[in-house]
Write a protein that binds this DNA or RNA. Structure first.
Lengths: 206, 206, 206, 206
DNA sequence: GATGAATGAGAGTTCATTCAT
DNA sequence: GATGAATGAACTCTCATTCAT
C-alpha cells in the first residue's frame, strides 16, 4: 500500500489511476489543472487552476500537498490514461511491430493533445525530489508495456538483439513534445506517427 | 580550438564593447552562467550567476538585455562548440554512417557534460519570442550538418528514402538530456553513443 | 460628520468614489497611501505604504493593479471628497462670486492638507496612459462645477465674456500646491483664499 | 561670490547665466540635458544625457555634483534665458500693463518650448535640499521683474493695492505647463498669452 | 470542509554614482 | 581630464502557501 500511496492525502492506489476513490472536488481540480497545465506548463499559477475549477485555492491545498504534487497528479492521470489504452493494445494478438505502430500512434496523438503537460512531466520526472511517484508509474507500468512488446518482437525475430530497457528508453523519449512540435511544421499531423514508428521499427529491426 | 574560441557566437548576443577588459568580463559572466545554468537550468537566478562570476548583477545586465538573452547566449555558445566539432566531422571522407556515429558520439558527450543546458535550450527554442537567434544557429547551421550527412547517406544507398528534414528532427531530438540521463543508469556512459547511433542508423537504413 | 459620512449619505457621484463597497482592508491601504503620498508624492514606495497600513505588499497588489493605480485611487478619493463639498456649494443660492469664493476657500484648504498629492494628481492626469479615470473624474465632474458657476456669473453680469472652459482651466490650475506653498511663506494661511478668490474674481470681472 | 556660486565646480557666477565661464564640455552637457529633460523630465537617466552629449557619464559627474545639480543647472539656464528677455522688456518705457502682456507672451512660449522642464523646475524648487540655487535665481532675479512691474502698475494707478509679492507668486504660477497643456487643447496656441495676461491684468486691476 | 484574503520571501530589473584605466 | 564598465541598493511585482472565518 505504501508503495502506491498517492500524492494527495494518502489514498492508496491499487492501480495507476489517481481518479479512483477521488472525491468530487479532487476531480474538478484535476480536470481544471489538466486544462491549464496543458496550456502553460509549470508556469501555471495555483490560482489559475482554482479559477478554472471554480474552487478556492485552499481547496486545492487540502487535496494536494503543493503545486508540484498537483502537477505530478495531473501527469500521472494522463499517463494512466495513455497506459490503459496502450495496455489494451499490448494484449491483442498482433505481431510486435503492429503493436508498436498502434502504441505510437496513440502516444503521438496524446502528446499533442496534452500540450505542455508531456514536457512538464519530463521535468518533474527528472527532479529527484518530487518525481518519484511519477517515475514509479511510468517506469513500473507504462514502460513495461514497451518492454513487453520489444521482447515479444525480439522473440518473433522481428527486432535485433540488445538491452530491451535501453530500446524502451529511446522509444519513450523519441516521442516528445519538441519532436511533435517541430515535425508538424514540416508534414501533416497524420503522417507523424508513421514516420515515428517506421523510424523505430527500422531502428529495432535486425 | 581553445575553449573560448567559439565564444564569439554567444558574445554576439551581448552588448559589444570596445574595451578588452569588458569583453573579458563578458566571458567571465558567460562561463559562470554556463556553470550554474548547467546545474539549475532556467531556474537559475541572475544573482546566482553574478555570484559565481564574482560580478554585480548590474554587470550582467550591462552585457545581456535580460535573463533570457543570457540563457540564449549560453546555449548558443555551447551549440556553437558542438557545431564546430560536428562540422569538422562532416568534412571528412568517411561514409555517411560513420560520420553519424562520430557526430552522435560527440553530441552525447556534450549533452551530458552540459547538464540542464541542453534541456534549457530546447525550452528556449520553443518559446517563439526569445528563441530566434538560437533557432537560427541551430537550424541554419547545426541541423544543416545532420541534413547533409543524411542526404549523403541516401545518395550512397545507405539510408532509406523519406523527408531528410524530418529524419534530421528525429535525430536531433533523439539525443536529449532525458535520454542520456536515463540510459546512463542502465549501461556504461561509453556505450550510450553506440546504442544511439545504431538505433538511428538502423532507423534510417533501407 | 466623520470624514466618510458624506460618502454614504451624500450626493451621488456619477463617477463613484472607490470607497463605496471597498472592504476594510482596501480602506486601510487607501488611508495609509494617502498619508505617505501626501508626504512623498510619487516617490513613495509601495513598501512604505504597506508598512504604514500594516499589511504586506501583496495585499496592496491584490487590491490595486500597480503603484500608479493606487496613486490614482488616492487622487480620485481626495478629489471626490473635494468635489462633493464643492458640489454642495454650487447648489446653494449664492451669487456666482460668493460661490467661487467658497469653492476656492475649500479647495485651498484641501490642497494644503493633502500636501504632495495635488501635485501628484496633476502628474498622473497628464500622463496619458494611467490618468484616464482621474481625468474623467476631474474633467467630467469637478470642472463642471467651476464651469457652471462661471456661466452663472456671466449670466448674472458679474463676469466678463470669454470661453468659460478656458477660465475654468485657469482657475483650476491657479490653486495648486506650489502657489499655496509659496504664499504661505508671505502671509497667514487664513488670508490665502481671499487673495486667490479676489484675484480670480477680479480676473473674471467685466 | 558665495551667494552666486554655481552648482558645478564652484565657478562664481556674476549673473544668473550659468553659461559664462563654462567650459566647452559643460556646455555640451547642458545643451544635451536641456533636450532630454525637456522630453522626459526628471525621469531622464544620466546615461541618456551622456549619450545625447556624446560624452561619458564620468564627464557629467566631473561637471555636476549629481543628477539633481545637473537638472537644476538646466532649469537655471533656461530661466536665465527667460529672465534676460523679460528684463529687457521691463526696461522699456511701456506702461505696466503692456509690459506684463509682453512678459507673459514670452513666458508662455518658453514654457511650451521647454516641455517638461518647467514642471521639473517647480519640483526642484520645492524640494528644500537641492532647490536653493534655483530658488535664488528665480526669487532674486526673475521674480523681481514681476515685482517691479507690479509696483509700477500700482503707482500708475493701473493695479489695485495688495501685497505685490503675493501677486507676483500668483502670476508666476499661473503660467505653468499644465495650464498651457490644457488650454492649448481648447484654443489656438497664439491665443493663450492674451487669455493669460487679460486674466491677470483684470485680476490686478482696481 | 471550503474559502480567498493576506503574507512576504524572492525574482527581475534599473540607474545614480564611483573609479580603474 | 575623459571614459564607460562595474557596482549594488532599491524598487516593482509575483505567487506558493497559510489560516482566520
Amino acid at each position: 500500500m505504501a508503495q502506491n500511496m498517492n500524492l494527495t492525502t494518502g489514498i492508496a492506489l491499487s492501480t495507476p489511476s489517481i481518479r479512483k476513490d477521488a472525491n468530487k472536488n479532487t476531480l474538478r481540480v484535476l480536470d481544471a489543472a489538466k486544462k491549464v497545465f496543458a496550456k502553460n506548463g509549470l508556469n501555471t499559477t495555483v490560482e489559475d487552476v482554482a479559477k478554472e475549477a471554480n474552487v478556492g485555492v485552499g481547496t486545492i491545498y487540502r487535496r494536494f500537498k503543493n503545486k508540484y504534487h498537483l502537477a505530478t497528479a495531473v501527469s500521472m492521470d494522463i499517463f494512466s490514461e495513455i497506459y490503459e489504452e496502450q495496455n489494451k493494445i499490448s494484449l491483442t494478438n498482433h505481431p510486435a511491430d503492429t503493436k508498436l505502430e498502434l502504441i505510437f500512434d496513440y502516444f503521438t496523438m496524446a502528446s499533442r493533445r496534452y500540450g505542455k503537460i508531456h514536457d512538464m512531466s519530463l521535468q518533474l520526472m527528472n527532479s529527484k525530489e518530487i518525481g518519484d511517484d511519477l517515475q514509479q508509474l511510468v517506469t513500473s507500468n507504462m514502460k513495461k508495456i514497451f518492454l513487453k512488446v520489444i521482447i515479444q518482437g525480439q522473440k518473433e525475430g522481428l527486432f535485433r538483439e540488445g538491452d530491451p530497457e535501453v530500446f524502451q528508453i529511446l522509444m519513450f523519449n523519441m516521442v516528445n513534445p519538441y519532436v511533435v512540435y517541430q515535425i508538424k511544421q514540416r508534414i501533416p499531423m497524420s503522417d507523424i506517427p508513421s514516420y515515428l514508428s517506421q523510424m523505430i521499427l527500422k531502428g529495432l529491426s535486425r
